[in-house]
């Protein structure tokens, strides 16, 4: 049932770019803070370019994930039921009876390993 989709290379590339931007904005923040510490500045908040870079990376991540993700699976119970066999849907394990021919037929049969 599970149809393997061809991987979406463009989506993966977008994710990769987004990751680098994200990483870079984090690193820039670190740099900025250590610079502030070095010059004893009391400036609060981040420079605008880092904020923009961060928001861009998040937006790109969102786009990339949507592109990479597989098709949605059915959530309807019916589709799941339709895949099962009548033997399992109509099974009654607590009501087994043993007076059937299986005991006589298979008594001396050596089961072959088919697997």
């Amino acid at each position: 049932m599970a149809v393997q989709q061809a991987p979406n290379h463009f989506g993966r590339l977008v994710c990769l770019v987004a990751f680098f931007l994200f990483f870079h904005s984090g690193y820039s923040t670190f740099e900025h803070l250590s610079y502030l510490k070095a010059v004893d500045g009391h400036e609060s908040g981040l420079p605008l370019d880092i904020t923009i870079e961060l928001l861009t990376s998040v937006a790109l991540f969102g786009l990339g994930i949507v592109l990479v993700a597989d098709d949605f699976k059915e959530i309807l119970m019916e589709t799941e039921m339709a895949k099962q066999s009548i033997e399992s849907l109509d099974a009654r394990p607590s009501f087994y009876a043993f007076n059937h021919r299986g005991r006589a037929v298979f008594k001396n049969v050596i089961l072959k390993d088919e697997m």
Binding site: S85, S88, A91, K112
Partner: peptide, 23 residues
């Protein structure tokens, strides 16, 4: 593998004694 098949059979409640005994 055999343990996995047996577990699946327990979950689906299908009556397949030949498979269960063989595995």
């Amino acid at each position: 593998n055999a343990a996995k098949v047996l577990q699946d059979l327990r979950a689906s409640a299908e009556r397949k004694p030949d498979v269960v005994v063989r595995l």
